[in-house]
Design a protein around this nucleic acid. Structure first.
Lengths: 151, 151
DNA sequence: GGCATTTCCTTAACATGTTAATTATTGCGA
DNA sequence: TCGCAATAATTAACATGTTAAGGAAATGCC
């Protein structure tokens, strides 16, 4: 017997899109006055958390495709929020680092962003929130890289 | 006390992006030989399921922004997969309908797409899969429109 | 009827997503 | 050392995401 696709009202890809839209809307609203896009914000967040790194690692950690990262890094450099520097040992690599101006933007919005996240956590309940993250991780083909949480 | 943002390794927006990527990758791969993008496929699916409708309703059901839908509908019309027709009663409205060629593409890939979905359902477990969909719906600000499932 | 408002859709402008081709550098082996 | 494959990043081309502005048709009110 051949199974049929579920209704688009109960489709996993569509549900993921809508959930992302619901989560990002308040964050985009928060970023409106900074002139940053959500992707630029994500890049700054990763750089702030892990420090200087090459473009490849940064793209993976920020979940961006390489061509997107190239453009975003250029934009952020023009805005003075990151620096780009050739790796002395392997001149193919580009080392990217957040500037103090970039860090200042993170610092200025960290509390508000955390509040937004807390809001969603409260909406779902703490246990459901963690469960949701775990289930989403299981759908991520590359999440072998990031298993910080032991059982 | 001021809360801090969670690590980007445990960020809900990033987890949503990665999960979507994981789910869509095999679907994009399936669509490669059709020349359709995932959004074009989504539009055809909605039209196939619900029949002719105006552009506004279609955009909402396919979770697309209006300008995106305008372009996608034009592309699909040029490909002969949908028809566009002015509403006789309200000439502002554009009624869109799938063609037999469009339906043929749906029919040709329905079984394979269903298999992909079944794979993810098996990976998470049926209960977790349904739970995931419910949790995602709670993050969707507009999900009041689609509550097919009673308690 | 005439006019402001609203609704539905399109267009524009810019950023990102996606795939493929290109360039620069490194590493390796004849 | 030369040539060739592999890696890191960029660029190109096209589709979509996102916000804002514009145009056509309906609606409400006078």
């Amino acid at each position: 017997m051949t199974k049929s696709l579920p209704s688009t009202e109960r489709s996993l890809p569509i549900a993921l899109i809508r959930a992302r839209e619901g989560v990002m809307a308040p964050i985009r609203s928060m970023l409106a006055d900074t002139g940053l896009t959500e992707q630029q914000w994500r890049v700054l967040r990763v750089l702030s958390e892990f420090g200087q790194m090459d473009a490849n690692t940064l793209a993976i950690r920020a979940s961006l495709l390489f061509p997107s990262l190239t453009r975003i890094a250029t934009t952020l450099r023009k805005k003075g929020l990151v620096t780009q520097e050739q790796d002395a040992e392997d001149r193919r690599k580009l080392l990217i680092e957040i500037t103090s101006d970039g860090q200042a933007i993170i610092d200025a919005h960290n509390a508000e962003a955390a509040l937004i996240v807390e809001g969603f956590k409260a909406k779902l309940g703490d246990d459901n929130y963690e469960l949701l993250l775990d289930l989403l991780c299981q759908l991520d083909p590359s999440h072998a890289l990031s298993r910080a949480k032991p059982d």
